[in-house]
């Protein structure tokens, strides 16, 4: 069995040592650090990209929030303007109505005054007409002159009674 040929042992051991030392030195000094750098570079790149994406997402969210805030503000200010305008218009309408009512009241009052006046005038006319009618009636009945004073008193009394 060649494996038990002791004469070959030193040669195998020496070359094993040489080979393995070369391998170990190259791996530990060059090969493995190089692989490590390649893997680390990729990991850093991926982490960097993820971070950037996260940052961009946050920025987008901030922009959306700002937009929504502006929208809400605009809506609120529109609401405010609408309310103010409505209030102002309502106040104006109320004012105009009040003025109109006042004017109407005044006109009504004035008209009533005129009506009373007319009524008074009419009533005054009524007395003179009544006195005439009474005089004529008394003359027809009595055939003579009529005491003007008594006539006036009688007409006044009847008028007062009817008023």
């Amino acid at each position: 069995m060649p494996q038990l040929d002791f004469a070959t042992f030193p040669a195998q051991l020496v070359w094993l040592l040489i080979s393995f030392v070369i391998l170990y030195v190259v791996m530990s000094k060059v090969g493995l650090p190089q692989v490590d750098r390649a893997i680390a570079a990729r990991r850093d790149r991926i982490e960097g990209d993820l971070e950037k994406a996260q940052q961009m997402k946050a920025e987008t969210e901030a922009v959306i929030a700002a937009y929504e805030k502006a929208l809400a503000e605009a809506r609120a200010s529109a609401q405010q303007t609408l309310k103010e305008t409505t209030d102002r218009l309502n106040a104006e309408a109320a004012e105009r109505q009040r003025a109109a009512t006042l004017k109407l009241d005044k006109e009504t009052e004035a008209a009533e005054g005129r009506i009373t006046e007319a009524k008074m005038a009419a009533l005054a006319n009524l007395r003179s007409v009544a006195v005439e009618v009474a005089r004529a009636a008394a003359q027809k009945l009595t055939g003579g002159a009529v005491d003007e004073t008594r006539l006036g008193t009688a007409v006044d009394a009847v008028l007062k009674e009817r008023a």
């Binding site: 004469a7 070959t8 030193p10 040669a11 195998q12 020496v14 070359w15 040489i18 080979s19």
Partner: peptide
């Protein structure tokens, strides 16, 4: 000692 370069080496 024989340290020849062999097929193993």
């Amino acid at each position: 000692v024989d340290v020849s370069f062999t097929n193993s080496s």
